[in-house]
């Protein structure tokens, strides 16, 4: 935090005024960003009756553990099932998705072949395809082959991430030196061995980024599961909470479970996010350079 050497006096005066203004502005913005989360935390600790009866921003009777118990035992523990489904869709989907994106992006970056640029532009076109526009036709296709209302209906479309390929190509160009590949080839290593034992290690941090992007995309996805699934036991947590929220008008007692469930489902993700922060920044920087 050192001020520039030239014009020290005026600069520091400027910074005193601006520092206060900037700090005030940022604090207002932070209240905006954190308020809903704070509200959710407070509301999750309250008994149902206090939701409407007490101030939404002040704690009242501490009832969090009862709320959690209700949440996890409601309808034979369906919420836990939803949470697990979300984890399955998001972790496995993003895992498989990252692997295939990495291989494809690596090949597009490191192998010279005809049609390479064309393929890449097709992938780029894919980035711009609104995925919700795909959901209805996919539903009709899947229903004609009996895939609707199964795990596959949500999982399979989720593994495809053109944006992941785009990132992987950029990362592979930047992180994997040509000479290293040449020497690996001269040593007689096959392309797959080179990729899995040399290149993927160099790309590892960026692969985490790709994984995170896809994880969030699947975790957030709502339209696709809504179109594809009717069986409650297959729902991801977003769809499950949406259903419950729709029933709160008729079953007001569900409200507390919707609130507690929302909190339970965002807290682990927020923690992972904060821990993995730096991967976002490298990824976002690379993503925006081209």
């Amino acid at each position: 935090m050192s001020t520039p050497t030239a014009g020290r006096r005026s600069a520091s005066r400027e910074s005193l005024a601006s520092r206060t203004a900037v700090m005030a502005l940022m604090l207002v913005l932070m209240i905006y960003f954190l308020l809903p989360v704070y509200f959710l935390i407070v509301a999750a600790t309250k008994p149902q009756g206090d939701l409407a009866a007490t101030n939404g921003l002040a704690f009242s009777h501490f009832n969090l553990f009862d709320n959690l118990h209700t949440l996890f035992t409601r309808s034979d523990g369906i919420f836990l099932k939803w949470a697990l489904n979300s984890v399955i869709y998001a972790v496995l989907g993003a895992g498989v998705g990252t692997l295939i994106s990495a291989m494809c992006g690596y090949a597009l970056a490191k192998f010279a072949f005809r049609g390479r640029e064309f393929l890449f532009s097709v992938v780029l076109g894919g980035v711009l395809v609104p995925t919700t526009a795909l959901a209805l036709p996919l539903f009709l296709l899947f229903s004609s082959i009996g895939l609707v209302n199964t795990y596959w209906a949500v999982f399979l479309p989720s593994i495809v991430s053109p944006f992941g390929v785009y990132l992987a190509r950029i990362f592979a160009s930047a992180a994997v030196p040509e000479e290293l590949l040449e020497s690996a080839r001269l040593d007689g290593a096959g392309e797959f061995r080179t990729f899995f034992s040399v290149a993927s290690r160099l790309m590892a941090p960026s692969l985490v980024t790709i994984f995170l992007f896809q994880f969030v995309a699947i975790w957030n996805n709502f339209f696709l599961p809504m179109v594809m699934l009717q069986k409650e036991s297959l729902f991801p947590v977003t769809l499950g909470l949406f259903e419950w929220n729709g029933q709160t008008a008729r079953a007001p007692l569900l409200q507390e479970s919707v609130i507690t469930g929302s909190l339970v489902s965002i807290v682990p993700v927020i923690i992972v996010f904060v821990l993995l922060q730096r991967f976002w920044r490298t990824g976002l920087a690379a993503g925006s350079l081209k």
Binding site: S143, S144, G146, V148, N149, Q230, E232, E243
Partner: peptide
Amino acid sequence: NISNDQYGTISNALKA
């Protein structure tokens, strides 16, 4: 029990 999407479930089943 098909209470969460009664007609969606029925109409999908008809299609399939």
